[in-house]
Amino acid sequence: MLLDGAFVTMKLAAVATVLGFVIGTFCAVGRNSSYRWLSALCTGYVEIIRNTPFLVQIFLVFFGLSSIGLTLSAFSVAIIALTINVGAYTGEIMRAGFNTVHAGQWEAAECLALSRAQVYWHVVLRPAVERVYPSLTSQFILLMLASSITSQISVSELTGNANYIQGISFRPMETFVTIGVMYFGLALLMRFVFWLIALVIFPRRRRLGTSI
Rank of each mutant, 00 (worst) to 15 (best):
C111P: 03
C111F: 09
L112Y: 08
L112W: 05
L114P: 06
S115M: 05
A117F: 13
A117I: 14
Q118C: 13
V119A: 14
V119W: 07
Y120E: 03
W121C: 15
H122N: 13
H122A: 14
H122F: 09
V123K: 10
V123Q: 02
V123P: 00
V123I: 04
V124M: 00
V124P: 01
L125K: 01
R126K: 00
R126Q: 11
R126I: 14
P127E: 02
A128G: 10
A128D: 01
V129K: 09
E130H: 00
E130G: 14
Y133L: 04
Y133H: 05
P134A: 01
L136F: 15
L136S: 02
T137Y: 06
T137I: 04
S138W: 09
S138Q: 07
S138V: 08
Q139N: 15
F140N: 01
F140Q: 12
L143P: 01
L143K: 12
M144W: 03
L145F: 10
L145V: 15
A146Y: 13
S147F: 00
S148P: 08
I149H: 06
T150N: 14
T150Y: 02
S151Q: 14
Q152V: 14
I153F: 02
S154G: 07
S154A: 12
S156A: 15
S156N: 12
E157R: 09
E157I: 09
L158A: 03
L158G: 04
T159A: 01
G160S: 07
G160E: 06
N161T: 02
A162L: 07
A162K: 03
N163L: 05
N163Q: 15
